[in-house]
Amino acid sequence: MKKFLILAMLLLPVVAGSKDKAIITVKGSDTMVILAQRWAEVYMTSHPDITVQVTGGGSGVGISALINGTTDIANASRPMKPGEREKLKQRYNSLGVEVKTARDGLSVYLHSDNPVTSLTLDQIKAIYTGLITNWKDVGGNDAKIILYGRENSSGTYVYFKDNVLQSADFAPALQSLPGTAAVVNAVAKDPNGIGFGGAAYAKGIKYCAVAAKTGAPAYEPTEENIKKGLYPISRFLYMYLRSKPTGALKEYIDWILSPDGQKLVAETGYFPIR
């Protein structure tokens, strides 16, 4: 009982004090949840007067919350769609403010014995949609291409589909495996395999260099190339606001873009934009 009283006394000022605190709500992309939480944690320790609440749910969920006015910041791992901009304009007479907060790259893995070392985006698309089924069509051995990928519940699947396949459907022959590690493992054991996922280090695989189009130089997914925007399969991680930020919101966004905030980007495994 005594313990409970002490606890209650300790908590009371916190509960009472929260009324005077500025609350910033952040909602959206599951890809960005960990990063957004890190930002919030670190920011709140240095700014005790501000509470940052972070929830996931997906990019679409965050943006519709922004439109409905239930969140201050929408996290999105994709740009806002025209339809969403339209809705925002109808309600707030603003197309929204886009803040690029980080970069994320996606690697294509090949077996280390595969003579193919680079592919163009169009070739990767054709391979994964099932138009190219033999390695010899992209300068490799005369062997069937074995497709590995992620389950359709994964954000990586959707990202690859939206950005590389330009929303076309994956070939039915795609073998979907649980987790990037499983994809890497499968490609490492399959000389004719191809897979995609985040950065990974494993024996038996190599990164495929990717060219934006035929004739353009191909780049490997190194931190340098992704940071400079040379590696073509990379996306921005955005924050969307209804209008130009002011007050506490502005301070928070400025801090995220500052070296302190960007340091956390690298710590969580993404690439800083500045």
């Binding site: 497709l147 359709n152 519940s153 994964s154 039915p172 022959a173 795609l174 073998q175 979907s176």
Partner: peptide
Amino acid sequence: GNAALLSLNPVEPVRTMSATIGAEMAEV
């Protein structure tokens, strides 16, 4: 291998009903 192929070949990847629920229910 979980590839939803319409084929009777026993050495091609398949996707079963139970695996589909197992893989997709969490994020739907």
